[in-house]
Simulated assay, not measured.
Amino acid sequence: MLTEFLSLLCLGLSLGFEDEKKNETLPKPSFSALSSLVVGYRGNVTLRCQSHFQNVTFMLGKLQDSRYRQEQRSTGHKAEFLLTHLEPKDAGMYFCAYKTMVSQEWSGESEYLQLKVRDVHDGHGAMEGKN
C-alpha cells in the first residue's frame, strides 16, 4: 500500500513538473543577417534565427505586416530564411521566434533587424540609367 501511494505521489509530482515546464517562458532567439542588411534592388539576403533548443519550429515575421509569416522546422538549433528578389516594399523590421514540440507556444520575439532595399530609381539600383 505504501509502495502504491509513493508511486502515485511520484507520478503526480512528475506530471506537475511537466505542466510547470510547459508554462515557462522560452528565451528569446538570436537573430542575425549573413550579409549586409542594405540590399540592392532584386537582391537577396539570408536571415538566421537561432535557439538554445533542437527540434523546433522557427517563424520569421515582419513588424509592419502582421500577415507576413514564414515558418521552418529544424532538427538543429537554427533556421535560415532566404529572402530573394527583394524590392523596396520588402524593406522593414524583421524578427523571429520559435516554438518547441513540448510547449507549442511561441517564444518571445528576437531583436529586430532593419532591412533596407535600394530603389531602382534612386541612382543605385540595378537598372540605373534606364527608363
Rank of each mutant, 00 (worst) to 15 (best):
V56T: 09
D119F: 02
K22P: 01
C49E: 07
Q70H: 13
F31A: 15
E111A: 13
E24K: 07
V102K: 15
D19Y: 11
N131R: 15
S74G: 03
L83S: 05
M59G: 09
G129H: 10
Q64W: 02
M59P: 03
D119H: 13
F31E: 09
S36L: 08
P27T: 03
F5P: 00
L115E: 08
E20A: 14
L13C: 12
S74E: 09
F81I: 01
S110V: 08
T46N: 05
D90Y: 02
G43L: 01
T100C: 03
N131K: 15
S66G: 08
G12Q: 06
A33H: 01
D19F: 15
K78W: 10
S35K: 07
R118A: 07
P88R: 00
T100A: 00
A126W: 00
K28Q: 12
E111F: 07
E80A: 13
F5R: 07
D119N: 14
R42I: 04
L6I: 15
N131V: 15
F5L: 12
N44T: 06
D90W: 02
S110L: 02
M101V: 15
L86N: 02
V38M: 04
D119Q: 10
Y112F: 08
H77L: 14
C96L: 00
G108H: 12
L26W: 02
C10F: 13
L34T: 03
K21R: 14
C10S: 14
Q70A: 06
R67C: 02
L6F: 07
L82D: 12
